[in-house]
Design a protein around this nucleic acid. Structure first.
Lengths: 178, 178
DNA sequence: AAAATATAGTTTGTTGATGAACTATATGCT
DNA sequence: AGCATATAGTTCATCAACAAACTATATTTT
């Protein structure tokens, strides 16, 4: 049994907000609305990912990152270089090696050397991998429908726009740190 | 040097969206808008947290979870039980033990037994811990201002509302899985 | 042509989280 | 009073990620 879920996520968010607002009343200059919003983001995103990960593990026996890599391969005509995949998924190359290892071990992808550039390999989804993705899509679709219930298209666009903006601001910040 | 940042986060988001849309054109029933939006969430939130974590590590020598626990203690009149803190921060109790260990080791918090309930302890922020939080607040404030630039109050409310809705839907989903 | 620099992928050790199991204690039920 | 159940916090093993360093190869510069 998970050792997290004493309270629900909603209850934790309420309690977190209350605690931060209380803390802010004794601290000058803390932009508590921003702190709370960022913390909500950082609580909800991992919780969504964890739930997705548990479903994928249960139904496919692989991790969420492995599954996502299969989707990304499908979006690249079936094959891609690990360095490309790690860029697209914003992960480390070392991690992508681990993910590739796991997929190859289960026969869901293959590694083949690049004919033109011997530094590179091509990771390609197999027929078994395609079948697995096809099998899980209905469950994914219904899960996502459930999770987005009550959030209209206009609000989703607002969220997407805000996330892009946050990413751009973070990129600018990271550039300024070097 | 970080092995992730070949591309910027923005570039990864564009590439991810393109790859998922391409994948979806060959897969019936994949709600690609939702997939993309969830994946953006799951890329941006950890990136923000990682950046914050690096700053905190650099300026305070502690992790982001340790720092956040100090803030939560301030919001609880200085003391709280680890089980309470883990609920508020939506973390495992085992993890909160690790966080408490780190804070106590650095003299930023103390553990004291509860007089009424010998199962419980109180984790209390020390004067040193308060000073550390006070010292970091200006940097946090400016970082958060930077990261939210270009996102107006109305849009922030839309994002907050969507996050609460996502949390509620996820709680409902988790309840239905038991 | 040779040397310097950059890129691709891997290996290794570390980190921060989790899940399971444990001990100690409190509460509720009979 | 005694037993069953629940809660609090800890320990331990595991996992999925990272950072650093490495080897091999390609490209650029001199």
């Amino acid at each position: 049994m998970s050792q997290i879920a004493q309270r629900s996520l909603c209850e934790s968010i309420e309690a977190m907000e209350s605690a931060f607002r209380s803390a802010a009343s004794g601290i000058d200059g803390l932009p508590v609305d921003d702190v709370v919003l960022l913390r909500m983001l950082q609580m909800v995103a991992p919780a969504l990912e964890a739930a997705f990960g548990r479903e994928v593990r249960k139904h496919a026996g692989i991790g969420k990152t492995e599954f996502r890599t299969l989707l990304l391969l499908l979006g690249s005509d079936g094959c891609a270089a690990p360095s490309e995949l790690s860029d697209v998924d914003h992960l480390g190359r070392a991690n992508m090696t681990r993910v590739a290892d796991a997929l190859v071990k289960r026969g869901l992808a293959t590694r083949t050397a690049d004919a033109d550039d011997r530094r590179r390999i091509s990771l390609c989804i197999t027929a078994k991998g395609r079948k697995l993705v096809t099998r899980l899509v209905p469950g994914i679709a219904s899960g996502e429908t459930a999770v987005f219930e009550g959030i209209g298209m206009a609000q989703r666009r607002q969220v997407a726009g805000a996330l892009r903006r946050l990413a751009a601001n973070l990129d600018a910040w990271n550039r300024s740190q070097r």
